[in-house]
């Protein structure tokens, strides 16, 4: 008896509390920057494609929904020839983003990607690539890597000595 009264009282009090539900889609909730939604491929500060086609995201993905093929431009810079995510399989776990050594693949705060036809959930590189650095501005993998892929010459990277002169015996 007492418990029933208490429940009714609580319900009554809640009538005057702030509402948690919002009138979606008219009203939208704020999503945090680290919210794990639609996946994008970002670009580096120089506007080059960040993804180097290393296949780490694909290997990390627990549902194996990323497939790509790496290729190279004339300078030896690697990039994906195609990059496909099957969002009908993706569980938005974010492992791909964690695995990515170049900050290329990022999950962004957007979940509005429902489709009537499942086939439309298969995203190709053209659908994934955005013209922005996303959450991690400033990083350019080829500047810190040792390779010369047309971004910096050997020895001109952030952490490098000039190339060794093999004819010199000086220490």
């Amino acid at each position: 008896m007492l418990s029933n009264l208490r429940t009714m009282w609580l319900v009554f009090v809640h009538l005057f509390k702030k509402k948690a539900t919002v009138q979606y889609p008219e009203e939208k909730n704020t999503l945090r920057p680290r919210w794990r939604g639609r996946i994008v491929l970002t670009k580096d500060p120089d506007g080059g494609e960040r993804c180097v086609g290393c296949y780490l995201c694909a290997a990390a993905c627990p549902v194996d929904c990323i497939a790509l093929q790496a290729t190279e431009d004339k300078d030896g810079r690697r990039y994906p020839e195609f990059f496909r995510i099957n969002f009908s399989r993706c569980i938005f776990c974010g492992y791909c983003e964690e695995a990515c050594p170049t900050y290329a693949i990022q999950l962004i705060p957007d979940f509005e990607m429902a489709e009537y036809n499942r086939q439309n959930l298969v995203f190709e590189k053209e659908d994934l690539l955005i013209d922005s650095q996303g959450k991690y501005p400033g990083y350019n993998f080829y500047k810190v890597a040792g390779m010369d892929a047309g971004v910096k010459k050997k020895g001109e990277g952030e952490n490098e000595e000039p190339p060794v002169d093999i004819y010199s015996l000086l220490p």
């Binding site: 694909a58 290997a59 194996d64 929904c65 497939a67 790509l68 496909r84 995510i85 099957n86 086939q119």
Partner: peptide, 16 residues
Amino acid sequence: HRYSGRTAMLANIGVS
């Protein structure tokens, strides 16, 4: 056992 892309490599042809 680390093979990747199982559910995406042919998804351009058919999603199933």
